[in-house]
């Protein structure tokens, strides 16, 4: 497998990482994601890392980059599903992920994205006054 699939769900993109990624795979995901955010006119990106049993400094940096790039393109990003052992490890490693918004699972992540994209709860979504 040499690509991580990116699935469009309404205004959002869903990335579910199901394999242990080598560095080039992580970098190609980063490129694919920025391309897809623009192409799909996505308002939000949800990255599910619940299958990842290792997040090292490289993967952590790439998660941060993907969140920043998504934001620069006018969308929001949430990383969900980090395993407890991974959380313990990255904190001791010194990785803070301060610029990455996180949520416990996909449901909570979707709720966070909806609230960010549509803060007033307006389902019309005209977005004329949004920045």
């Amino acid at each position: 497998m040499d690509r991580i699939p990116i699935i469009k769900v309404g205004d959002f993109l869903l990335v579910s990482i199901q394999v242990d990624m080598h560095d080039r795979l992580v970098m190609s995901l980063q490129d694919d994601l920025t391309t897809q955010v623009v192409k799909a006119r996505a308002k939000g990106v949800l990255i599910d890392i619940s299958s990842l049993d290792v997040v090292d400094s490289f993967i952590g940096r790439m998660l941060g980059n993907m969140a920043s790039m998504t934001r620069v393109l006018g969308a929001e990003a949430v990383v969900v599903g980090m395993r407890p052992a991974v959380a313990t490890t990255i904190v001791e490693l010194g990785l803070s992920l301060t610029n990455v918004r996180t949520a416990l699972d996909v449901d909570k992540g979707m709720a966070v994205l909806r609230a960010l994209v549509n803060p007033a709860g307006d389902e019309g979504g005209h977005g004329s006054g949004q920045n």
Partner: peptide, 10 residues
């Protein structure tokens, strides 16, 4: 396990 595997990766 996770700590050792992560150190190995680094």
């Amino acid at each position: 396990q996770t700590k050792m595997v992560t150190a190995t990766s680094e």
